[in-house]
Write a protein that binds this DNA or RNA. Structure first.
Lengths: 140, 140
DNA sequence: CAACAGTTTAGAGTTATTCTAATCTACATT
DNA sequence: AATGTAGATTAGAATAACTCTAAACTGTTG
């Protein structure tokens, strides 16, 4: 049986990452890490919905705060790009570098970055695009 | 001197892609393709600002419509991911497949997809992340 | 040049996320 | 154990990037 991670374990996890074990963080951590090794992808909205269903008193703002705190602590990894969409007049396949400080997007010289092993799509589906975005930022 | 692409050339470009050469599309095409081979990245907002500065009467909605039409026509390539951010409890480096029909994000088996030739960041900068997102969708 | 399909538009609506500033709480210290 | 306070939470407003709607306009075809 998939037993829920104990409060004690969760508390220790938070403490180990310098996060005060508040009621809200405990609840969210239990949803995110029900047991060691359990992997999942979650959006802020989905997590908020789960927390709400579980009658945890947690606001959406707290879900966002917590997800970012957990990410900073290394408990989560964020997957996304700048929310803006760029349109590139270069229509040949190539990849991009995004300067997070300025928002500037530049092409990666084609051929420099190689990508192999793109999975075959299931029958009836097609790969619409493969985007590689290397994000760079000034050192703190 | 970098001469602006003539109206004639622009008109032909649009016609060749089954797009009526309206005043608005002509203006935007000239901004996007000032001369053959000129490559650039542009956001809807930035293009709208350019068009506005050039005193072209073009609405923001038209800029969006036009960018998408040009993309469908193959004149542009869109660079972005789903606007939502996902948080992944798997913090080890790996890449993702996004099912565009359902919004479901799944991990790519590590090792399957290999990435080589990631550029060295300029001094003082660091690579914050390298995201590879393979997008799939059901065939039309 | 009439007619209509295709296009444009202002402004409202949506979605995902961040901000604000007031309230609350964990916990180190008394 | 009570207290002080830095840290945390919250409701709701604000923002950003689009998308939608439905009315007005325009290229093109006959």
């Amino acid at each position: 049986m998939a037993k829920k991670q104990s409060s004690e374990v969760t508390r220790d996890l938070l403490r180990a990452h310098d996060l005060r074990p508040t009621r809200q963080r405990m609840a969210l951590a239990k949803l995110l890490f029900p047991k060691p090794g359990h992997k999942q992808h979650v959006t802020a909205d989905a997590l908020f919905a789960q927390a709400t269903k579980a009658k945890t008193g947690v606001s959406l703002a707290t879900v966002y705060n917590t997800l970012h705190q957990f990410t900073e602590a290394g408990l989560l990894r964020e997957v996304s790009v700048s929310s803006a969409t760029y349109f590139d007049t270069n229509t040949s396949p190539h990849h991009h570098v995004l300067d997070e400080d300025t928002g500037m997007l530049t092409d990666l010289k084609p051929g420099r970055l190689a990508l192999t092993g793109i999975p075959r799509p299931p029958r009836g589906s097609q790969v619409t695009s493969v985007d590689v975005i290397v994000r760079m930022r000034k050192k703190a």
